[in-house]
Each structure stands twice: as structure tokens, then as C-alpha cells.
């Protein structure tokens, strides 16, 4: 199956990935090739098979909801490009 340029642009929007015009043709070609390849799965008989949600088929271990660490915001924020008064800054969301 060949994906269209429009489909690829839609997926890129969902993924919040800006593709340069020069990249689009390559992505269309390679993504179509990957989708064709994984289409082999359709031939497998999986009636009554429970989908695998964990590689050991185990359930998630839970812990008590307790504070385990002090707040380290100052250290964490050293990696951010734009902060003020302990907040992370982003372009204006509400007018």
C-alpha cells in the first residue's frame, strides 16, 4: 500500500513533527515501504489470542502513594531553555 503525501502530512501533524518539503518525498516512500512490510501480520491467525500487554505477562507492581523525594525544581530547570520564577515558559496559549 502506498501512502499519499496528504496522509503523511496528517500523521506528521498528529506527531507534532515539522517535515521540511525536501524530506516529505523520502518519508512517503520509506513509510509506505514499512507499512507494506508490516502488512504481513494480517495473514497470521490470531483468533482468540489475548494481545500481549507485558513481556512477562505480569501485572504492574504498585507502590504506596507517598512522597519519596524532595522537590528538585531548581536542578531540573537547569536543562530548560526558558523559565521564569520557577515556571517553564511557552508561547501564549490563551488570548
Amino acid at each position: 500500500m502506498s501512502l499519499t503525501k496528504q496522509q503523511v502530512q496528517h500523521v506528521a501533524t498528529l506527531a507534532r513533527l515539522k517535515l521540511e518539503d525536501s524530506e516529505v518525498a523520502d518519508v512517503v516512500g520509506k513509510l509506505s515501504r514499512i507499512v507494506d512490510f508490516v502488512d504481513q501480520l494480517q495473514a497470521a491467525d490470531t483468533d482468540d489470542v489475548v494481545p500481549m500487554a507485558h513481556p512477562l505477562n505480569m501485572s504492574q507492581r504498585l507502590r504506596a502513594d507517598e512522597v519519596s523525594e524532595p522537590n528538585q525544581r531548581d536542578i531540573a530547570q537547569r536543562n530548560a531553555s526558558s523559565t521564569a520564577k520557577g515556571y517553564y515558559l511557552v508561547p501564549k496559549v490563551l488570548e
Binding site: 507534532r16 513533527l17 524530506e23 518519508v27 513509510l31
Partner: peptide, 19 residues
């Protein structure tokens, strides 16, 4: 979001995110 990710990721990572 989209320009940061478009600039920051290489071609294979983008392909896998897209897939």
C-alpha cells in the same frame, strides 16, 4: 512543538515516530 522536534530529531527517529 513541531519545529523543535523537526529540527532536533534525525531521519530514522522521525521515521519511527511517524510509523
Amino acid at each position: 512543538y513541531s519545529r523543535t522536534r523537526g529540527e532536533g530529531f534525525g531521519a530514522e527517529v522521525k521515521r519511527r515516530i511517524m510509523t
